[in-house]
């Protein structure tokens, strides 16, 4: 099982044993990590699973498609490494992934 670390805005970190084949969002929710709301349930439709992928992992996690870009574009705290966690599929290749969570979801 790939190990993934999510760091809350407060600095509190959570390392989870993630399940490959599921999204990063679903893994975070299943493991009770706070800071991700996921209002739409993973449809790339609400923008409330915003996260920041650490620089080393940008290539491995892939690129946002047009819809994800549109949703990210509405975030006031959008950064170059912004992604929606529901659009990142966890695989064994992501063992060791580190993502930061934003101050708020909206």
């Amino acid at each position: 099982m790939p190990k993934i670390t999510l760091i809350e805005f407060s600095g509190q970190d959570h390392t989870i044993d993630a399940e490959a084949g599921k999204s990063l969002m679903q893994n975070a929710i299943d493991n009770g990590v706070p800071g991700i709301d996921a209002d739409c349930g993973g449809a790339c439709a609400c923008g409330t699973c915003h996260c920041f992928v650490s620089e080393d992992w940008l290539a491995a996690t892939g690129e946002a498609d047009a819809m994800e870009e549109a949703m990210l574009g509405m975030r006031p705290d959008r950064a170059d490494n912004s992604r929606l966690a529901c659009q990142i599929e966890v695989s064994d290749e992501l063992d060791g992934l580190v993502v930061n969570l934003p101050e708020f979801q909206m």
């Binding site: 709301d37 739409c40 349930g41 549109a70 574009g73």
Partner: peptide, 14 residues
Amino acid sequence: NPRHHVSFGFGIHR
């Protein structure tokens, strides 16, 4: 899962 509702709409006009 109380936040899973459609009152706010979805997509870019949410």
